[in-house]
Nucleic acid binder design. Sequence first.
RNA 1: GGUGGAGUUGAGCAGUGGCCGCUCCGGAGACUGUAAAUCUCCCGCUUCACAGCACCGUUGGUUCGAAUCCAACCUCCACCA
Length: 376
Amino acid sequence: MASHFQLLTKDGTGARRGRLSTLHGTIETPIFMPVGTQGTVKAVTPAHLRDVGAQVILGNTYHLNLRPGSALVRELGGLHRFMGWDGPILTDSGGFQVFSLSKLRDVRDDGVAFQSHLDGASLFLGPREVMGIQADLGSDIAMVLDECPPWPVERGPCALACARSLRWAKACRQVAVDSGFLASGRHVFAIVQGSTYDDLRREAAEALSALDFPGYAVGGVSVGEPEPEMLKQVAATTSFLPEDKPRYAMGLGTPPQLLRMIALGVDMFDCVLPTRVARNGLAFTPHGPINLRNERFRTDPAPVVEGAANYTCRNFSRAYLRHLFLSGEMLGGTLVTIHNLHFFLDLMAQARAHIEAGDFGSWHLSWIRTYEGAQA
RNA sequence: GGUGGAGUUGAGCAGUGGCCGCUCCGGAGACUGUAAAUCUCCCGCUUCACAGCACCGUUGGUUCGAAUCCAACCUCCACCA
C-alpha cells in the first residue's frame, strides 16, 4: 500500500517538495493552511478559498465542540458538508487553547478542564474526548491533545508538559486505532513540545517518532517568543523527526518565517496572521506589509499588488480599500483576506516551483531581502 | 418686538468656583495552532516635553483663583405677537 506521504524532492537547503493524500484530496507541500476555527475562514466563502488556491483548511475542536457541538455537526453530515468545503480539513485539538485560554482552564493528568469562554460551562477535553470530537467533525487530519506551555517557561513545568503531551499522544493514537479512525484513511499528527529546551524537544521528537504517527507537528511556538528563538526551536525539532512523514509548524508565520522554515524542512503551516490582519486593514506585498488605512493611500489608484492574480487586485484600488476600512464596511475585510490568503498561497506555490527547480536556497534569500528591504 | 433656551479649541455632548472630560470623525501602531471585522496610542499651540502657553460667543466685572458667579452686548433656535 502506497504511503500517504510522498517526498518528491529535497533541496540542498533542506527544503522538501512533497505530496500528502487525504480522503478529501491531495495536498502539495510545502503548503499554507488558512485557519477556520469556527467552521469558517473568517470573511471569505469556500468559493473564495478555492479561488485563492487553498488546498486544506483548519477547524478547531474546542470551539466547534462548544458551538454548535460536534454531535450536531455529525448529524448534519460532518464539518465538510456543514461548512460547504469539500477539500481536506485539519482540526486542531484544543491544545492551543491551553495556552490562549490559560485563565479558563485547569490542566490535569487525564486532560484539560475548560470553563467555556462563551458561558462559563465546564468542558473536559481528554484524549478520548478530543479524538471523538474530531471523528464527529470528520477531520482528515486530527491533532493529538497537547499541552502548549507559555513563553518563557521554566524547565520543570516544561518537562511535565512534555511528559503529559507524550502520554496524551499515545492515548490519542490508541483511540484512533481502536475506533478505526486511522484505518479509514484519516491521519493523526503528533505534536512536539519542549519550548526553548533543545534536549526536551529532541527527547519528545524521538519518543513520538517511535510511535509511527502519520505526521508530526512543532508545537509551543507562536506563543510570544522572539523570532530567532522561534526558528531555533523549529530547527531543534525538525532534525529529529522522520524524513518520510509530513512536518507541520503550528501557528506560523510571517512570509519570511515561512520561507526560512521551509529551508528547515517544514512542509505545512497554519497561521491566523493573513486573515486577522486583513480584517484590520493590513495587506501583504512583495515589499512588505502595507496598512491600507494610511492616509498615503487616499488617492492611490493602484491595486494592492500590481499584477497579482487575485480577485481583489484585479478589480480594486488601494484608495477604494482604504475607503471601505475607514467606512467600517465589511467588504474591506473580505477583499483583503482574499488578497492576503492568495499572497501566502502563491508564495507557497513559488516555493514549491523553486524547490523543484533546485534554486530554492538563493531564491528564498533574495525574496526575503526584497520583502524586508523597501517600502511598497 | 416679547418670552424661553443655547453658544466648550473638526462634529456631537458632559462639565455651577481650584482636579479626570466622554463619544464620534481624523492620524498612527499592534496583531503569528483566532475569546480579535479587535485592541492601543495621538488628536489647541510651542524646538512635541513628567515643560510652557492658550481656549469654553464678545467685552467688562467679582474673586487668591472663573467655562462655572455678575453685567452688558453678539449670534443661533423655539414659541408668542
